[in-house]
């Protein structure tokens, strides 16, 4: 009896160790895929990663093709998106945290935000095509793209901003009220400056999502082949992911390698945005501890 029990205990312990390895393998496999993906992209694109690639206009000849136009286009779109989405998202978050209370209206808005976060990005593209490109006659412009992206990232910004607002110590808020400040004065002079660091972090992370979005851009009709830089929000444009998609979809290996080089550029921009966000977060945390 005791022997049987000990045998079973040994089996159970061996099973425990085996499964620990299996679970670890799941993580290892996931991360391995990430490594292989990055390695594959860099290897494929290495040949084209030269300075001229960044400064050249598109071309039908792979050797002359560059990524300047979509790179500038992407920066235009995310810059304009940030400009529109930041005030809108922060205002909505402030409303929900400080004004709405527990009314049916605030519950309606919150349910909407939760649902919008789950809507596929391509549906935003259909919305942008119908409302901004056609309805408001903005055409296939930087502005139409930025407005579409604004709607796409707004739920993310609102959720992140609300979290940042909630981290402002209540004692500071009460301190300001006790001096006779109105609600808006408390928000403008105490809450927003205190939360600014983490709000910016959240906004940058949300914007970097917009940078990689491809489907809505295709839907609203960003151009794959465009030979001028946008100078105006109503100019036509291309963006990095669209250029990558366009190159990747061609059968010639040279263009697929261009796509890989484009991906490296896209990931580099993404990485820099994330680095800024992390730097802001650390800076803010240090200040808060102090």
């Amino acid at each position: 009896m005791t022997g049987e029990w000990q045998r079973r205990r040994r089996v159970r312990q061996r099973l425990d160790r085996i499964f620990a390895a299996v679970f670890l393998l799941a993580i290892a496999l996931s991360l391995l895929t990430l490594v292989v993906l990055l390695w594959d992209v860099v290897r494929d694109g290495a040949r084209w990663l030269r300075w001229e690639f960044l400064t050249s206009y598109p071309s039908r000849i792979p050797e002359r093709a560059g990524i300047l136009v979509p790179l500038v286009g992407s920066l235009w779109v995310i810059g304009l998106t940030a400009l529109i989405a930041l005030p809108l998202g922060v205002a909505a978050a402030v409303y929900l945290e400080f004004y709405a209370g527990d009314s049916w209206l605030s519950r309606l808005i919150e349910a909407n935000i939760a649902n919008l976060a789950g809507v596929p990005s391509i549906v935003y593209g259909l919305l942008g095509l119908a409302i901004f490109v056609r309805g408001l006659h903005l055409g296939r412009s930087v502005l139409a793209a930025a407005l579409t992206m604004t709607l796409l990232v707004l739920p993310v910004i609102i959720v992140a901003t609300r979290e940042a607002l909630r981290s402002v110590p209540v004692s500071l808020i009460h301190g300001a009220y006790a001096l006779g400040a109105t609600r808006w004065q408390v928000i403008r002079t105490v809450v927003l400056p205190t939360a600014a660091g983490s709000i910016m972090t959240g906004v940058i992370l949300a914007i970097s999502r917009a940078l990689g979005e491809t489907a809505p851009m295709i839907t609203i009709g960003a151009w794959a082949f465009i030979t001028f830089l946008p100078r105006h929000p109503l100019d036509g444009f291309s963006v990095l992911p669209i250029q990558i998609f366009n190159w990747a979809a061609r059968p010639q290996p040279a263009f697929q390698q261009l796509a890989a080089a484009g991906i490296v550029v896209l990931l580099a921009v993404l990485l820099s945005l994330n680095a800024v966000a992390i730097w802001l977060r650390n800076k803010y945390q240090k200040k808060a501890e102090w």
Binding site: G89, A91, A92, I109, I113, L116, V119, L154, I158
Partner: peptide, 27 residues
Amino acid sequence: RERWIARLLLLAGLVSVLTTVGIVLTL
């Protein structure tokens, strides 16, 4: 001024509702 600010903020909050309405309507 406080009342106006409250209205503006509410408007920003309503953008999410308008987005849903916009999606459903255009589709």
